[in-house]
Design a protein around this nucleic acid. Sequence first.
DNA 1: ATATGTTAGTTAAACTACTTAACTAACTGT
DNA 2: ACAGTTAGTTAAGTAGTTTAACTAACATAT
Lengths: 403, 403
Amino acid sequence: MGTNENRMQIKTQNKKRILQCILEHAPISRAEIAGKMKISKPTVSFLVDELIQEKWVIEKGIGESTSQGGRRPIHLYFNEKAAYIIGADIGGTKVKIVISDLNGNIVAASTFQTEHYLNTGLLKKIAKEISVMIQKNDIDQQMILGMGAGVPGITDTTCGIVTEAPSLNWVRYPFIKEAERYLSFPIYVDNDVNVAALGEQWLGNAKHKENVLFIAIGTGIGGGIIIHNQLYRGSISAAGEMGYMVTDKNDMKNEFKPIFHRYGYLESVAGGKAIGDKLTKLVQQSPGHPLYEQAKSEELTGEMAFTLAKKGDEIALKVVDEAIEHIAYGIINAASLLNPEVIILGGGVFKSSEFILPKLREIVDHYLPSSVELKISQLGEDAGVLGAVSLFLREHESIINFS
Amino acid sequence: MGTNENRMQIKTQNKKRILQCILEHAPISRAEIAGKMKISKPTVSFLVDELIQEKWVIEKGIGESTSQGGRRPIHLYFNEKAAYIIGADIGGTKVKIVISDLNGNIVAASTFQTEHYLNTGLLKKIAKEISVMIQKNDIDQQMILGMGAGVPGITDTTCGIVTEAPSLNWVRYPFIKEAERYLSFPIYVDNDVNVAALGEQWLGNAKHKENVLFIAIGTGIGGGIIIHNQLYRGSISAAGEMGYMVTDKNDMKNEFKPIFHRYGYLESVAGGKAIGDKLTKLVQQSPGHPLYEQAKSEELTGEMAFTLAKKGDEIALKVVDEAIEHIAYGIINAASLLNPEVIILGGGVFKSSEFILPKLREIVDHYLPSSVELKISQLGEDAGVLGAVSLFLREHESIINFS
DNA sequence: ATATGTTAGTTAAACTACTTAACTAACTGT
DNA sequence: ACAGTTAGTTAAGTAGTTTAACTAACATAT
């Protein structure tokens, strides 16, 4: 009957704030915390003692007195090894799983190809893989807090259902419900790009930025938006769908047919697949081109286009430059609207970042009134898994849940 | 020394939540509040009694028992007349001021032309106008909580400085500091479009929507973004600058020169001024056109273009249709990225909404995968002033400050 | 009419988690 | 060794909440 919510809340809240403070400013003393957080010294001492008992915090070493003397402070540290979290990046071609500590240090990692398990139960395989990782690394089962996962599709994060993930053949797939059949800890899912954005904000190039746009350019083009330090998913989890942007009004009318839903204009002219297709088409019309024969029998890829372009191939250069231009206008549009502190570029295409970034910057800086920081994903391949860990940390209601 | 912040906070917070609950669900009883908010009955009773003492809440009438009997509940109402707030919409051509009660009912309104007071102290005039309004309507000075204001320019809301407002000749104008010279209550400023967005969310077509995009198309084009029920201003207060969007890659390269800063591509092809200019140019080349002579001596306006287009004039129709197309692509781009619940169209151009809206809807619905609610501003001319009132209510730290 | 059950709102006591004030511990400099 | 300073603890007090038990006011059935 009734709840202690009000009374409880204030204590839990203070505890969380103190833990957050220790995490950010370690090493730090009890006295310093009391000063910073405007909580009285006895309260801080009491709550810190509880946190130490619960293993979230450790005392280690003592600091120096000031020049005016005084007792030396006891250093408090966040105990990053207090618990572990699983991060899973489920892609169309491969699945990446890590076990991470609370500071995002990867203590174990594993990868497998998606295709072999698409029909035989992907989550069963994931659970098995996790159990192997736990055993191999001799981790206490009890110390695993839970799992975060990123999936390539529209996800209803509140009920844990993947609305649509074409590359996994999932439609209204009850991800969390399925996962809970094999895994006995709490699980959270979100779109892979959103998750990657969280990763970059936690440990990458968007650290300490309140408003972030993460743009992933792989086969298609997607965006993850962080606003006021919070993931913004939109009214129906469709925020960040940059692939649907229109950067050329006339081209739009002449060539583009929005017949295939889930496939937007910008993707159709600047996505990885689109670049590959266009290259294939042009090379097929150019006898004498080094890939002329190859292009007759198979589709060339976007990656090939960038490799060729870097070598100075004119056809590839043309294809690539045009794609870059479209992306630049997409970025201008997004930045005009969102005015983020930083825009992070990720996804497969950006392995050629040294090649692309200067070109992008030139166009963007030229047309945008207020300049934006434009950076490449710092975590690269790990953005997904670490973001998944971050997702868990943010969503899970526990002492460790910072906002 | 030290603060009672922790203890105080929880009480104030509960009080605010209760007041908010009464505001939303009036008439409501103490018992109902206790149930809804999960606060114990004695606490609710105590806090409600305080709120009644402070005049925020009034008891009025009693409700019916349930069919199973029981004491009849006492109806609690939010006392919308507990205090009054000034809302000011400062435009390039006119200034509109209202005195509003706490529910946004306008109890007094006044308007004057901006130009006469641009150099002789706009804020002094505003203060004078307010004082006249207060006297005329016999309002107790003490009951005025403060003022919110919207200005047509980039505004640093944290320190109350208008960074740039071309139509007012303001550069780094210390708005709040100036205002406080003449007015003795707290004041908040923000960009006019942001403020209008707040207005629509409070009392207009965006009511109860968490994520809103307000697009104002007047001389230029601007946007106001509400995300997670909070105004999103961007990293340097430049969010929503939709005027800088690019909807036509080639046109961009050929014609558009971003020479004049603070003037974007989309504005340059679809803003009110741009429409007028284009019409003028085309009419000048069309001898026999009803406005042929007029166009030689003066610039035609965007409004004229719409009036003509509605009558079926082919030249105007062409100009207007092209602008609408650009705006539609702008909306598609914005909606792709933001996926808001609703997009509200406001600003001068949308006096011709019956004409424009169907055309816009057709293009947008055709190219956007997830359909968006596209609506005209419900508050119209009052969006600014009422939004300004809402701005005050949100920003001001008082019992009335809901989030 | 009266008894019974139900719901609204109040009162009194208990409890939680905070604060202040005064303490001890441990250090620097003269 | 003594004064001055800072870190952390202890003890008492306080604010704001809760629970439990109350009164008030109603409907329905006997």
